[in-house]
Amino acid sequence: MRSKSQARPKVGVFKFASCDGCQLSLLDAEDELLAVARAIDIAYFPEASSIMKKGPYDIGLVEGSVTTHHDAERIQHIRRQCRTLITIGACATAGGIQALRNWAEVDEFVRAVYASPQFISTLKTSTSIAEHVPVDFELRGCPISKHQLLEVISATLAGRKPNVPTYSVCMECKRRGNVCTMVAHGTPCLGPVTQAGCGALCPAYNRGCYGCFGPMESPNTASLSQQFRVLGQSSGDITRAFRGFNAWAWPFRQASGEGHRS
């Protein structure tokens, strides 16, 4: 019994700037949680456990983006501790909504929120984990899909490539039998350029996709922007549409009107 428990792969869950939602996805797998905990050794997961075992870890799951000097150093240490490093969610894979600071003067942002800005230590940018260290797999989503998370963990344990499609939300939308919200209702929708994974939720709820899973492989953002203009969207509207939860992901950053930091 003892040797079996020692043979289980050690998994660490690490948090950077984020809302906690992606690591919560693991706890939201109510039907699978206890089975998962039998298959792996959840060695470090402060949100769920007081036991915090030291590394090295077989798998590190990283949520959140890098926004402080301390975190920029911490991710280097975590990378050295993890054999396989998987980033989970829009913050970890693209910088998250907090990457909107990347277009602004961060000192002014801090002054807008805090009465004593001198107490706050933060970087000028919010960036993905992969901008700091090599990452073995990036799992997209705001939040991630718990089914995709279980698939990525299973695949990593089995030593195979995770089955996580990189095509667009449109594919899921057609499969779900949704009526195209952009064609039928003239509602602007990021589905054609956004990676699948949510199950085409927004169109199924009578609204346009807002890009939670980030850019698909080779997205034609120029064509979509043109279509948005046809639908009467202003350039401000288009910029705001691309500057969402995956704003700093390169294709969306470019499509939002400014490819480079101001």
Partner: peptide, 22 residues
Amino acid sequence: FEPPRLFEAFLRGRTFSEAPDI
């Protein structure tokens, strides 16, 4: 020590309809 994410700053200039999702 949770890093500040500065929501109240970057909400400025967004539309009223985006506030619930942001």
